[in-house]
Nucleic acid binder design. Sequence first.
DNA 1: GCGACAG
DNA 2: ATCTTGTCGC
Length: 234
Amino acid sequence: MDTPGALSCDDELRHWPTDEDQARAVQDRLRSSARLDEPGPEPGFEGTVVGVDVAYDDARDVVAAAAVALDARTRAVVDEATAVGQISFPYVPGLLAFREIPTVLDALGRLARTPGLVVCDGYGLAHPRRFGLASHLGVLTGLPTIGVAKNPFTFRYEPPGPDRGATSPLLDGDEEVGRALRTQQGVKPVFVSVGHRIDLDRACAHTLHLAARYRLPETTRAADALCRRALADA
DNA sequence: GCGACAG
DNA sequence: ATCTTGTCGC
């Protein structure tokens, strides 16, 4: 049963690039598939928000991914899954997705139910070619995705106001590619950008809701802890 | 050419 | 990302 316009995740994985030029070509080819015209799920929607993260052991060439599903309203952990694989791509700024996505997809596939939103470590639209990790994961899965990064990468921003919830534009030249968001008073902001099927306002609202107690969203914290454990046990 | 550069 | 002790503070 073919769906016109849809792309096959399996096919993309079979043709996973092995060098940087191929990888950039994949980003350029898939970029137009990212949907930026949907508002996306509203905070507190009925369903799960899933955090994904990856940990590496370069010496053993092992990568471990974790996917942790939280109730979108209560933030309670309702499911979690891990996957272990071989490191398939070096870390190259701008090509992070090729290092993380295969194992992340494996972990996501082991969840009991379909996520309503996936929160990635890193960027979506805020990317040199406007197709970061969150964009790529969204296009391959069809799921709404956002990127929440701890660093501004190469982009500029003015510090947001001191209060929780304050934002400022994350800029690539004159273009707003995301937002700096203060999730807690007195801490560095996080850097939010859209991936797939959600708008920036909602991406920030979800991030703020998920970061009720700490600087980083609970999804990120839970996935980070779990993938480290999975790596240690691998 | 050099440095910077999500994780 | 990862290598890594103690330490200041709630």
